[in-house]
Design a protein around this nucleic acid. Structure first.
Lengths: 339, 339
DNA sequence: TTGAAAGCGCTAACAT
DNA sequence: ATGTTAGCGCTTTCAA
């Protein structure tokens, strides 16, 4: 299938020069007369010639391609990040191979091999369940980890200041007169651990108790479906309400979880923010579609994407990168209507 | 940067055979003794050798890679589709290059060139503003268009039956006692035109008037931000309500738009579904986070992804594909709480 | 069963 | 200013 694409060789023949000259013209390096330049460019244009990136990549050992490894494109925080990162690299002349691992370690490792095999110039790793093991790669490819701790000290790490985010949320909940509870999903991650710690420390700093009642973690099974989550949350709400706690404050570790809380609350006729106050995390689009609109912690994905790609590009170009190998991006509290 | 990866050549040397033999062993084709097989495989394993996909691609003129061109990964309908398509291809041994065009025709054309240049074996084009112009490609690459009419008859087209979806929604709205209005975003597309037509035809079939009052289309400016949309919609709602129409029925051309309607309605204290009935389109995650949960038209992304990839793979393998070059996937009405 | 060698399309070092 | 040529790592005839 497909008529062969024309190669640099025919261009050379048609314009009566050597392949080397054509190559020079294309890449605008080396010397050639203005006249040949025109001639070659004309032929290229009229033949619709496009350079073969595979051949070039093989020859140069550089593909101008970077890989992005992401757990789940359906998660809007991730898709937002990916879109922004991609856009940065596009502008810088790189193309990107996006790999959705579906949170599957095996798939991830296959993808990593594939990226290496395709000679990508760099890799962006976003989140993930465990530490990122750089020994999976046999070549030494520049890597940046976002929200995922690498196991090697020479890999650049960047992510939101989840600890601070949790602190802001928790403080706000306390200020508004509640003794907050944290709601966590079933999945562990670098970031969720930081958030938990921020929550706990803030409780303690404010002279409140942190005990088994302060933390509510969904089981795998509960977390599997929307309905599972909502049922579990409704249960939680009922328990807390029945025991007379009011207002109740919940720090949800993600906006979707927070949205599920609001939903469960509606079905129980508890009034928000009077009887129940909730704060989410991410400031994802859904926060503005919740009813009432969700108070949440904003993650600065612009900066994360920006810094991650800037770093990676300089690492690829072999610049000595003087920055620290870890960067925490600031977060902020977005007040809307659930507190 | 990066120590060189080991090549087939060193493997050959280390196992005392020729490169040809190593290649045969790796690809398990041609003949070789069991003994050499073992020897070579051992060396490969202990050296952590991985084949260089770039070199292989150049030689074979086949990269086992397909490109996916998508307007916007942040749109959950698209990200859902992409994820499913990707998963299909992954299983079939293909890797995918995902290209987010940000709805920019120029970016799209650059991406198409890039994909061609990287010798992808096939391309999936998802949605987009205008017809897909296959003349952008100079090689003849197998292509499948999803929700995007191609300008050539030999390109496979697949998409939801948007016309039927609109019909279902409109009928439901009429049955529930309203004289429905359609709410459209500012962007034109193959699918939105079909939906509009379905809406219009259904109105007429039911003896209702279709006039300028039946259709409310957001301007570019209004459609730019959430707040712009909500303000415009609030205006619409107020007008309709003031003129005494109740209940009012709105068919929103997407779930997000429907969600914005619900929001505007809340701020106006109109009661759903008593005074206002709305149906969305897509059955995207947000439909279950709206309050009340959104009645909507379900698109069967599983089937779309499945069929699109199956088709493309056989086209790549050069099978004569006997199916029609266009396939409409069935849709269904999901009744929830806004009608 | 195995090896030698050509060649995929390109760039770069070396000639001229 | 331009041409010749080697070689990136691989597969695949053709020979042995």
């Amino acid at each position: 299938m497909g008529q062969k694409k024309i190669s640099i060789r025919e261009i050379a023949k048609l314009s009566g020069v050597s392949v080397a000259t054509v190559s020079r013209v294309i890449n605008n390096n080396g010397r050639f007369s203005e006249e040949t330049r025109q001639r070659v460019l004309n032929v290229i244009h009229e033949q619709g010639y496009e350079t073969n990136a595979i051949a070039k990549g093989l020859r140069m050992q550089k593909t101008n391609t970077i890989g992005i490894v992401v757990p789940d494109l359906n998660n809007s925080f991730f898709s937002d990040l990916v879109e922004k990162i991609e856009s940065q690299f596009f502008t810088a002349g790189y193309s990107t191979i996006i790999c959705d691992t579906a949170r599957d370690a095996h798939k991830e490792s296959i993808y990593l091999k594939m990226l290496e095999s395709k000679l990508v110039d760099g890799i962006v790793v976003i989140s993930g369940l465990s530490e990122f093991d750089s020994k999976q790669l046999s070549r030494r490819i520049p890597i940046v980890c976002i929200d995922r701790k690498p196991n090697a000290k020479d890999i650049f790490f960047i992510g939101s200041n989840h600890y601070k985010g949790a602190k802001l949320a928790t403080e706000e909940l306390i200020k508004s007169g509640t003794n907050p509870v944290i709601l966590m999903g079933s999945r562990e991650s670098t970031s969720s651990r930081d958030r938990l710690k921020g929550f706990k420390d803030t409780l303690i700093e404010n002279g409140l108790n942190f005990d088994s009642g302060s933390i509510f973690q969904l089981t795998n099974q509960q977390d599997e479906t929307i309905d599972g989550r909502r049922t579990a949350i409704r249960q939680l709400l009922r328990n807390k309400m029945m025991s007379g706690i009011s207002p109740l404050g919940i720090f949800a570790v993600s906006d979707t979880l927070a949205a599920d809380i609001l939903f469960a609350a509606h079905s129980l006729y508890v009034s928000i923010p009077n009887d129940l106050k909730v704060i989410g995390f991410d400031d994802s689009p859904i926060a503005r579609y919740c009813y009432p609109e969700l108070t949440t912690i904003h993650q600065d994905t612009d900066t994360i994407a920006q810094d991650a790609s800037t770093y990676l590009i300089s690492a690829i170009q072999g610049d000595k990168v003087h920055t620290d190998s870890v960067k925490l991006v600031d977060v902020s509290l977005v007040k809307r209507n659930t507190v």
